[in-house]
Protein backbone atom coordinates (compact mmCIF):
# COMPACT_ATOMS: atom_id res chain seq x y z
CA UNK A 1 0.00 0.00 0.00
CA UNK A 2 2.93 2.32 0.50
CA UNK A 3 4.06 4.08 -2.64
CA UNK A 4 7.60 3.67 -3.84
CA UNK A 5 8.83 7.12 -2.96
CA UNK A 6 8.44 6.82 0.78
CA UNK A 7 10.84 8.73 2.97
CA UNK A 8 13.73 7.27 4.86
CA UNK A 9 11.91 6.78 8.09
CA UNK A 10 11.53 3.25 9.28
CA UNK A 11 8.10 2.14 10.39
CA UNK A 12 7.94 0.72 13.84
CA UNK A 13 4.79 -0.41 15.55
CA UNK A 14 5.92 0.99 18.88
CA UNK A 15 6.87 4.38 17.52
CA UNK A 16 9.12 6.48 19.64
CA UNK A 17 7.27 8.67 22.11
CA UNK A 18 10.37 10.60 23.04
CA UNK A 19 10.16 14.26 22.27
CA UNK A 20 13.90 14.56 22.18
CA UNK A 21 14.25 13.57 18.58
CA UNK A 22 11.56 13.32 15.96
CA UNK A 23 13.70 10.84 14.07
CA UNK A 24 13.37 7.07 14.09
CA UNK A 25 17.03 6.44 14.68
CA UNK A 26 20.55 7.92 14.77
CA UNK A 27 21.20 7.38 11.06
CA UNK A 28 18.15 9.38 10.07
CA UNK A 29 19.14 12.09 12.52
CA UNK A 30 22.65 12.22 11.04
CA UNK A 31 21.37 12.48 7.46
CA UNK A 32 19.02 15.25 8.46
CA UNK A 33 21.74 17.15 10.33
CA UNK A 34 24.03 16.87 7.33
CA UNK A 35 21.37 18.22 5.00
CA UNK A 36 20.69 21.03 7.45
CA UNK A 37 24.37 21.93 7.30
CA UNK A 38 24.35 22.00 3.51
CA UNK A 39 21.36 24.34 3.55
CA UNK A 40 23.21 26.56 6.01
CA UNK A 41 26.18 26.62 3.65
CA UNK A 42 23.82 27.70 0.88
CA UNK A 43 23.04 30.75 2.93
CA UNK A 44 26.74 31.42 3.38
CA UNK A 45 27.28 31.16 -0.38
CA UNK A 46 24.62 33.78 -0.95
CA UNK A 47 25.94 36.06 1.79
CA UNK A 48 29.56 36.02 0.64
CA UNK A 49 28.25 35.89 -2.88
CA UNK A 50 26.72 39.31 -2.46
CA UNK A 51 30.19 40.68 -1.80
CA UNK A 52 31.55 38.90 -4.85
CA UNK A 53 28.77 40.47 -6.91
CA UNK A 54 29.80 43.90 -5.67
CA UNK A 55 33.39 43.00 -6.50
CA UNK A 56 32.40 41.83 -9.97
CA UNK A 57 30.40 44.96 -10.70
CA UNK A 58 33.11 47.37 -9.61
CA UNK A 59 35.81 45.38 -11.33
CA UNK A 60 33.83 45.44 -14.54
CA UNK A 61 33.34 49.18 -14.30
CA UNK A 62 36.84 50.14 -13.17
CA UNK A 63 39.16 47.40 -14.40
CA UNK A 64 42.11 49.76 -14.69
CA UNK A 65 41.72 50.89 -11.11
CA UNK A 66 41.64 47.28 -9.88
CA UNK A 67 44.80 46.61 -11.86
CA UNK A 68 46.56 49.46 -10.17
CA UNK A 69 45.17 49.01 -6.67
CA UNK A 70 45.70 45.28 -6.36
CA UNK A 71 49.44 45.76 -6.65
CA UNK A 72 49.35 47.25 -3.18
CA UNK A 73 48.37 43.86 -1.77
CA UNK A 74 51.19 41.52 -0.80
CA UNK A 75 50.92 38.36 -2.89
CA UNK A 76 53.47 36.61 -0.71
CA UNK A 77 51.35 37.10 2.39
CA UNK A 78 48.14 36.20 0.60
CA UNK A 79 49.76 33.15 -0.93
CA UNK A 80 51.12 32.07 2.44
CA UNK A 81 47.64 32.33 3.91
CA UNK A 82 46.23 30.27 1.06
CA UNK A 83 48.73 27.51 1.73
CA UNK A 84 48.04 27.72 5.45
CA UNK A 85 44.29 27.41 4.99
CA UNK A 86 44.57 24.54 2.54
CA UNK A 87 46.82 22.70 4.94
CA UNK A 88 44.31 23.37 7.71
CA UNK A 89 41.55 21.90 5.55
CA UNK A 90 43.73 18.87 5.06
CA UNK A 91 44.37 18.46 8.76
CA UNK A 92 40.68 18.98 9.44
CA UNK A 93 39.71 16.28 6.95
CA UNK A 94 42.27 13.96 8.53
CA UNK A 95 40.85 14.77 11.96
CA UNK A 96 37.33 13.95 10.83
CA UNK A 97 38.56 10.71 9.30
CA UNK A 98 40.39 9.78 12.50
CA UNK A 99 37.22 10.35 14.54
CA UNK A 100 35.21 8.24 12.14
CA UNK A 101 37.74 5.43 12.60
CA UNK A 102 37.78 5.75 16.37
CA UNK A 103 41.37 7.01 16.49
CA UNK A 104 40.99 9.48 19.29
CA UNK A 105 44.61 10.51 19.75
CA UNK A 106 45.08 11.14 16.06
CA UNK A 107 41.91 13.18 15.98
CA UNK A 108 43.22 15.34 18.82
CA UNK A 109 46.49 15.84 16.99
CA UNK A 110 44.83 16.88 13.76
CA UNK A 111 42.33 19.20 15.42
CA UNK A 112 45.20 20.79 17.30
CA UNK A 113 47.20 21.23 14.08
CA UNK A 114 44.16 22.79 12.42
CA UNK A 115 43.90 25.32 15.22
CA UNK A 116 47.61 26.04 14.97
CA UNK A 117 47.39 26.65 11.25
CA UNK A 118 44.35 28.85 11.74
CA UNK A 119 46.35 30.90 14.22
CA UNK A 120 49.05 31.32 11.58
CA UNK A 121 46.38 32.67 9.29
CA UNK A 122 45.40 35.18 11.93
CA UNK A 123 49.00 36.22 12.46
CA UNK A 124 49.62 36.83 8.77
CA UNK A 125 46.38 38.77 8.56
CA UNK A 126 47.50 40.89 11.49
CA UNK A 127 50.66 41.84 9.61
CA UNK A 128 48.74 42.53 6.45
CA UNK A 129 46.13 44.72 8.08
CA UNK A 130 48.59 46.71 10.15
CA UNK A 131 50.65 47.35 7.05
CA UNK A 132 47.56 48.62 5.27
CA UNK A 133 46.70 50.90 8.18
CA UNK A 134 50.24 52.20 8.19
CA UNK A 135 50.16 52.98 4.49
CA UNK A 136 46.75 54.64 4.69
CA UNK A 137 45.26 52.01 2.41
CA UNK A 138 41.93 52.18 4.17
CA UNK A 139 38.30 51.91 3.09
CA UNK A 140 36.41 54.70 1.38
CA UNK A 141 36.38 57.90 3.30
CA UNK A 142 39.43 57.03 5.38
CA UNK A 143 41.77 56.37 2.45
CA UNK A 144 45.03 58.26 2.88
CA UNK A 145 47.68 56.81 0.61
CA UNK A 146 49.69 59.35 -1.42
CA UNK A 147 50.98 57.01 -4.11
CA UNK A 148 47.74 55.44 -5.27
CA UNK A 149 46.02 58.31 -6.94
CA UNK A 150 43.08 56.81 -8.80
CA UNK A 151 39.95 58.49 -7.42
CA UNK A 152 38.09 55.20 -7.10
CA UNK A 153 40.93 53.35 -5.38
CA UNK A 154 39.37 53.68 -1.91
CA UNK A 155 36.52 51.48 -3.15
CA UNK A 156 38.95 48.65 -3.83
CA UNK A 157 40.11 48.77 -0.27
CA UNK A 158 36.56 48.97 1.03
CA UNK A 159 35.85 45.73 -0.78
CA UNK A 160 39.15 44.24 0.37
CA UNK A 161 38.50 44.97 4.02
CA UNK A 162 34.84 43.94 4.04
CA UNK A 163 35.49 40.68 2.18
CA UNK A 164 38.59 39.62 4.07
CA UNK A 165 37.11 40.97 7.30
CA UNK A 166 33.93 38.92 7.04
CA UNK A 167 36.07 35.93 6.14
CA UNK A 168 38.22 36.59 9.19
CA UNK A 169 35.16 36.60 11.44
CA UNK A 170 34.22 33.22 10.01
CA UNK A 171 37.74 31.93 10.70
CA UNK A 172 37.43 33.04 14.31
CA UNK A 173 34.06 31.34 14.70
CA UNK A 174 35.50 28.22 13.09
CA UNK A 175 38.39 28.21 15.53
CA UNK A 176 35.93 28.37 18.39
CA UNK A 177 34.01 25.45 16.97
CA UNK A 178 37.16 23.37 16.50
CA UNK A 179 38.24 24.11 20.05
CA UNK A 180 34.81 22.90 21.16
CA UNK A 181 35.37 19.70 19.16
CA UNK A 182 38.74 19.28 20.86
CA UNK A 183 37.14 19.57 24.26
CA UNK A 184 34.44 17.04 23.44
CA UNK A 185 36.95 14.66 21.87
CA UNK A 186 39.02 14.77 25.06
CA UNK A 187 35.81 13.89 26.90
CA UNK A 188 35.43 10.86 24.60
CA UNK A 189 32.07 11.97 23.24
CA UNK A 190 32.82 11.03 19.64
CA UNK A 191 33.58 7.82 17.83
CA UNK A 192 32.47 5.69 14.91
CA UNK A 193 29.04 5.48 16.49
CA UNK A 194 28.56 9.24 16.64
CA UNK A 195 30.54 12.00 14.97
CA UNK A 196 27.86 14.31 13.60
CA UNK A 197 29.25 17.57 15.08
CA UNK A 198 32.73 16.67 13.88
CA UNK A 199 31.60 16.17 10.32
CA UNK A 200 29.48 19.31 10.31
CA UNK A 201 32.21 21.54 11.77
CA UNK A 202 34.48 20.02 9.15
CA UNK A 203 32.06 21.14 6.44
CA UNK A 204 32.05 24.63 7.89
CA UNK A 205 35.82 24.79 7.94
CA UNK A 206 36.13 23.51 4.38
CA UNK A 207 33.67 26.16 3.30
CA UNK A 208 35.75 28.87 4.96
CA UNK A 209 38.68 27.52 2.97
CA UNK A 210 36.60 27.59 -0.21
CA UNK A 211 35.81 31.25 0.23
CA UNK A 212 39.50 32.07 0.59
CA UNK A 213 40.27 29.97 -2.49
CA UNK A 214 38.23 32.50 -4.44
CA UNK A 215 39.23 35.59 -2.46
CA UNK A 216 42.94 35.11 -2.96
CA UNK A 217 43.15 35.21 -6.76
CA UNK A 218 40.37 37.75 -7.17
CA UNK A 219 41.86 40.26 -4.76
CA UNK A 220 45.59 39.58 -4.87
CA UNK A 221 46.27 38.22 -8.33
CA UNK A 222 43.79 39.79 -10.70
CA UNK A 223 45.71 41.44 -13.46
Amino acid sequence: MMSADVSDRAVTAAASHEHESPFAGPDEAFEAAKQGMWIFLVTEVLMFGGLFVAYGIFRGLHADMFQEAHRYLAVSLGGTNTVVLILSSLTMALGVGATQRGQRDRALLFFGLTLLLASCFLLVKYFEYSHKFHEGLLPGGYFRNEHLKHPKAPLFFSLYFVMTGLHLVHVLVGMGLIAWLLKRTVARQFGPHYYTPVELVGFYWHFVDMVWIYLFPLLYLVG
Binding site: D27, L94, P192
Partner: peptide, 27 residues
Protein backbone atom coordinates in the same frame (compact mmCIF):
# COMPACT_ATOMS: atom_id res chain seq x y z
CA UNK B 1 34.26 -0.32 13.31
CA UNK B 2 31.51 1.49 11.44
CA UNK B 3 27.83 0.71 11.69
CA UNK B 4 25.98 -0.68 8.71
CA UNK B 5 24.42 2.47 7.32
CA UNK B 6 24.28 3.58 3.75
CA UNK B 7 25.82 7.01 3.52
CA UNK B 8 28.57 6.98 6.11
CA UNK B 9 31.38 6.95 3.64
CA UNK B 10 34.80 7.49 5.19
CA UNK B 11 37.32 9.13 2.90
CA UNK B 12 40.49 7.04 2.70
CA UNK B 13 43.53 8.75 4.20
CA UNK B 14 45.45 8.39 0.96
CA UNK B 15 42.73 10.21 -0.98
CA UNK B 16 42.59 12.93 1.64
CA UNK B 17 46.30 13.63 1.45
CA UNK B 18 46.32 13.43 -2.34
CA UNK B 19 43.55 16.00 -2.61
CA UNK B 20 45.40 18.24 -0.16
CA UNK B 21 48.56 18.05 -2.25
CA UNK B 22 46.63 18.76 -5.44
CA UNK B 23 45.20 21.86 -3.86
CA UNK B 24 48.69 23.08 -2.96
CA UNK B 25 49.96 22.39 -6.46
CA UNK B 26 47.03 24.25 -8.01
CA UNK B 27 47.68 27.16 -5.68
Amino acid sequence: TEPAARHHHILPTFTTVLVGLSLLVLT
